[in-house]
C-alpha cells in the first residue's frame, strides 16, 4: 500500500494550514490513515512542502483540537483512535459532489463555499 500524500496549492485562497488540516482529516475519514498511524514531524512536513514550520504546527493544532490526531511524547503525532469516520453514504455523496464540481469547472474555494452554505441551510 502506497503512503498517503498531501498537496499544497500556494496559489489557493485557502490558507496553507487549512489545506493541510482538511487533507489529513479527509485521509483519516476515508480510512487511508488509521488509528495509531504516525504522521511526519512538523519540521519534516514543513520542509517537504516548503513552508514555515509554524504553518504545519497550526494545521496539526487544529486537527488535535478536532480530535483527529494527538501528540504523544515518545511516538510523536499519531492518528487518534477516536477519530470520527463519517457514514459511507455521506462520503459517497461528498465524492459525487466533488466530481460534479470538478466537471463543471468550479474552483476549490467556490466548491467549499457551496458546501458551507448548504450546511448552514441544513442546520437552520
Amino acid at each position: 500500500m502506497s503512503t498517503p500524500r498531501i498537496e499544497l496549492d500556494t496559489g489557493s485562497a485557502i490558507p496553507p494550514y487549512e489545506q493541510i488540516r482538511a487533507q489529513i482529516a479527509g485521509l483519516v475519514a476515508r480510512g487511508s490513515l488509521g488509528p495509531g498511524d504516525r504522521l511526519p514531524t512538523v519540521r519534516a512536513l514543513a520542509a517537504d512542502l516548503g513552508i514555515a514550520a509554524n504553518t504545519v504546527a497550526r494545521g496539526y493544532k487544529e486537527l488535535e483540537a478536532g480530535g483527529v490526531i494527538l501528540t504523544r511524547r515518545r511516538l510523536g503525532t499519531v492518528v487518534a483512535s477516536g477519530a470520527t469516520r463519517p457514514d459511507p453514504a455521506v462520503m459517497s455523496r461528498a465524492e459525487d459532489f466533488a466530481r460534479a464540481a470538478v466537471a463543471s469547472g468550479l474552483d476549490e474555494t467556490t466548491a467549499v463555499d457551496l458546501v458551507r452554505s448548504a450546511l448552514r441551510l441544513a442546520q437552520a
Binding site: 500524500r5 499544497l8 496559489g11 511526519p40 514531524t41 517537504d48 512542502l49
Partner: peptide
Amino acid sequence: ATGPVRSASLRRR
C-alpha cells in the same frame, strides 16, 4: 520545495 503546487508524503521518517 518550489512551484505553486507541492506534494508531501505522510510517511514518518
